[in-house]
């Protein structure tokens, strides 16, 4: 049970795809000008992540190693097209707002990365949980960046006016440069907090190393080198 919980929360905090692994930077910078579009993008990516992780995990013994990447791309592209059709039909305004970034979920590094690193080596349940955790982490990071950019850029959050009437927004935050600035500042804060936590004197060196290694995708290579 503890392991399942750890898989779920890994993507939200320890291995957050946007703020820690720095994956999916293109939609992160492009979509975060408004909280609503960020939330829509995050939910669409979560749906694709959960679906593709589950299917890829189911197919892991069936798909040959030589064709695994094209097979993953077919599965991911299938899910993205489904999301596109559903969104076009039920949420046309959000579909218009996301524009080209919705079909571009197919090439989102987070999805292909999780398919290759996790879903192809773990059980269906664990893979679905990993997809959910990673999707939630991505959505939360997008919403956080979007909230900061929208608030300082327009004085609104989720199109609800907060300081719009008495304080004009700083256009810089809506522009791409503002996106890089906000993302950099948030990553710095997250790193400061996590490193401070790791510097806890109560924890010994071994414990800290184990905690760090647990979330590293190169763990197996490292261990082999240590043993070899």
């Amino acid at each position: 049970m503890k392991k399942k919980w750890q898989i779920l929360t890994n993507g939200i905090i320890k291995e957050n795809p946007t703020l820690v692994l720095l994956l999916g930077m293109c939609p992160t910078l492009a979509i975060t000008t408004g909280v609503i579009s960020a939330l829509g993008m995050g939910l669409a990516t979560t749906f694709v992540l959960v679906g593709s992780n589950t299917v890829i995990s189911l197919l892991r013994k069936f798909v040959q190693k030589t064709v695994r990447i094209p097979a993953y791309i077919v599965v991911i592209a299938g899910f993205v097209t489904m999301v596109e059709m559903l969104m076009k039909s039920y949420l046309p305004s959000l579909y218009g707002a996301l524009g080209i970034y919705l079909p571009l979920i197919v090439v989102n590094c987070i999805i292909l990365g999780r398919a290759e690193l996790f879903a192809s080596q773990n059980t269906v349940g664990d893979s679905a949980l990993d997809g959910l955790g990673m999707g939630a982490g991505f959505t939360l990071a997008l919403c956080l960046i979007a909230a900061v950019r929208e608030f300082f850029g327009t004085g609104c959050i989720a199109e609800i006016a907060i300081t719009e009437e008495w304080m004009p927004g700083m256009t810089f935050f809506i522009l791409p440069a503002g996106g890089f600035f906000t993302l950099g500042m948030i990553i710095a804060i997250v790193r400061y907090i996590t490193e401070k936590r790791n510097r806890d004197p109560q924890k010994n060196c071994r414990e800290r190393e184990e905690e760090f290694c647990e979330s590293c995708p190169n763990r197996a290579i490292c261990q082999n080198e240590k043993e070899g």
Binding site: L59, F62, V63, Q64, V67, P70, A71, V74, V75, A77, G78, T81, M82, M85
Partner: peptide, 13 residues
């Protein structure tokens, strides 16, 4: 196997 995955995906779409 790739063709089979492709066919199932197309059917679902």
């Amino acid at each position: 196997s790739l063709c089979l995955i492709l066919c199932v995906t197309v059917a679902l779409l």
